[in-house]
Design a protein around this nucleic acid. Structure first.
Lengths: 165, 165
DNA sequence: TCTATTTGTTAGACAAGCCTAACAACGTCC
DNA sequence: GGACGTTGTTAGGCTTGTCTAACAAATAGA
């Protein structure tokens, strides 16, 4: 139950990228991992050696890169953190996708399981609220505050404007 | 206007700690910086050399450590990020102070100016809402959702319970 | 099939940030 | 004012994660 691995951000990034490439292209190759992460193939090689020793990837010379079950779990966890952070930044804080993505990439290595769990709940709460009734009225009020700097008591107007997306 | 310094998290931590020690003790000494950050004095020395070269601290052998104006600005920025993240984690997400502090320490190096600004607005929005009227009703609803997993249409009950602090 | 291009591997260097261990300055207390 | 404990400094080493450059394997084209 306890994730006592203490993986570095870099290694988490490698796992995440491998998982992503496998999802997109069915296979992950050294070169593609490198270009995704903007590092040289030799760095990828060193990382794969590291991750193999930790039992997170399966790799043999000149072959494709694969994740072990454990590796997949770690990758999924990182991706989940990324996703929830991205949602929070874009949907709640209304941050542009580019900046939000960048920040999510860095923050995903910094948040605890606890914060991830609570933030997930928060996003669920927001998304449920956006399902039609007025329980996420506050989000609209926040966006109004963001734009104008003024707090208003927007009494649930009947006319919704599905802003953006 | 543009912060093109690209300071490492470690160096940001040093600046933040120096500012904190100065605020608490009026002076910052090598040894105290080291124990605050759980690193050895020799590491502090190396960091001070680095930060001096960058024009962020003023330090002469065997003396006290001081921040330059620029150094103070950077430290303040980091502290501001820390504070707003801590507030978000504790007040909005209801995360325990210990975990929230740890996370804030890591996240403070990961968020952009943009995210800091929006999150600050969000916290303002929440705090204004908590000032007495029911505009932060949603936060109470979220906390209810956190506890019970159920969404309710808590129609602004007159009886507030100022839960914890 | 042979050769050219692409892809992968290895060795060796380097920077950041930490450490230990030995040494130097400081301050204090008889 | 000298000896000692504390604090600061320096040298040198280690780890992580990156790079370049040279080499090796694989693949594709003619």
């Amino acid at each position: 139950m306890k994730a006592c691995d203490e993986l570095s951000s870099s290694m988490e990034d490698y796992l995440e990228t491998i998982a992503l490439l496998k999802k997109e292209n069915d296979v992950a190759r050294v070169r593609d991992i490198g270009s995704s992460l903007a590092v040289k193939s030799s760095s990828v090689n060193a990382a794969l050696k590291n991750l193999s020793q930790k039992g997170l990837v399966v790799y043999e010379r000149y072959g494709y890169v694969n994740l072990t079950t454990k590796g997949e779990e770690v990758a999924a966890k990182v991706q989940d953190k990324h996703d929830v952070l991205l949602k929070f930044l874009t949907k709640v804080l209304s941050i542009d996708n580019d900046i939000a993505s960048e920040d999510a990439c860095k923050m995903e290595h910094a948040i605890s399981a606890e914060t991830f769990a609570k933030l997930s709940k928060f996003i669920q709460f927001v998304e449920i609220g956006m399902g039609g009734d007025n329980s996420a009225e506050w989000l609209k009020r926040f966006n109004h505050y963001l734009r104008t700097g003024k707090i208003v008591e927007m009494q649930s107007t009947a006319s919704y404007r599905s802003k953006g997306r």
